[in-house]
């Protein structure tokens, strides 16, 4: 490796690279979520016939994974670098490997493998087929060809590449704890995130107001359903994301029994399915504008 990249330069490198491959550089979506997949830039855009190529960083919150900032690898919030390309290009694997080269990871100096790992997110009605990518035995990327999103079989198929930024950075910077990573300009990851990790863990496991969260879940659900009825896909989807995050907070407090758990997940899934259908209907009404743009591009 010629020089060690800090996290912000890693992100810039990936953005430059995927931008060159035709991805739009989106920004993180401003509602809490457990994974970059749940951003509307992936979940909604993977549905329907329109092409879509995008890349973005997504801070992802997983309340149950919080460790009060004590565990060197587990975090309440980690960062994903998300790439989605639809339809999946024939050379998507090669493109991905190209991105590793940009990050200074030369395949011949390492052992890179694609190990089967089929991805599922039952609460969002999603399933895909793919791999985890191993770099010298470490999982650095989840690589998925979406097959079902929001309960709908998708066509064209979206290829999704999710880099775990902290994981990859730990490797590149050769540190054992994420808190020792350099974010940029000499500032450590721990300087920024250690205290929030502690507080969010304390909140998620100990001090959150369960009654309030239960009420919020119900209110968010009502609102999501109402807005689906109103045909307002995006507000509805925001409330589904809020339901999902609220459920994760309840789950982290063991406030949900196993029986109830299945019930909550089914409620989220039903909304995700409904919004997926509403999104296709909405895009169809608009005449699938991105299909026309593509046709124009091809003519030019």
């Amino acid at each position: 490796m010629q020089q060690t990249l800090d996290i912000q330069n890693m992100i810039l490198t990936l953005q430059r690279y995927w931008g060159k491959q035709g991805c739009m550089l989106m920004q993180a979506y401003d509602t809490e979520k457990g994974a970059g997949t749940m951003s509307p830039y992936t979940f909604l855009r993977a549905i329907g016939p329109e092409p879509w190529n995008a890349a973005y960083v997504e801070p992802s919150r997983r309340p149950a994974d919080g460790r009060y900032g004590n565990n060197p690898n587990r975090l309440y919030q980690h960062h994903q670098f998300q790439v989605v390309m639809k339809p999946s290009p024939a050379n998507i694997q090669a493109l991905y490997l190209g991105s590793l080269r940009e990050l200074g990871i030369k395949p011949l100096e390492h052992d890179i493998r694609f190990v089967e790992d089929n991805w599922k997110n039952p609460s969002m009605g999603c399933a895909g087929v793919g791999w985890e990518v191993w770099l010298d035995g470490m999982e650095i990327t989840q690589f998925t060809y979406f097959q079902v999103v929001g309960g709908l079989n998708v066509k064209p198929v979206t290829a999704e590449i999710t880099y775990g930024i902290e994981r990859l950075a730990s490797y590149i910077q050769n540190v054992n704890s994420v808190f020792d990573l350099e974010w940029g300009d000499g500032v450590k990851y721990g300087d920024i995130f250690k205290e929030p990790e502690y507080e969010q863990s304390k909140y998620s496991f100990e001090t959150s107001n369960q009654d309030m969260l239960l009420q919020l879940f119900n209110l968010y659900e009502q609102e999501a359903k109402q807005q689906i009825k109103n045909g307002l896909v995006h507000p509805a989807y925001d409330y589904i994301l809020k339901c999902s995050h609220t459920f994760n907070l309840l789950d982290a407090r063991d406030a949900v029994s196993v029986t109830e758990r299945a019930g909550y997940l089914a409620r989220i899934r039903n909304m995700a399915r409904a919004v997926a259908r509403a999104f296709v209907a909405q895009r169809e009404k608009l005449g699938f504008p991105l299909l026309k743009d593509q046709a124009k591009k091809e003519e030019a």
Binding site: L108, E109, H110, D111, I112, R113, L135, D136, G137, M138, Y171, N176
Partner: peptide, 19 residues
Amino acid sequence: RNGNQQHLANVVKGNEKVL
């Protein structure tokens, strides 16, 4: 490893770190 002896030390070190 899926590869040859080149830069094997890197691969060993990475795997040791993960384990």
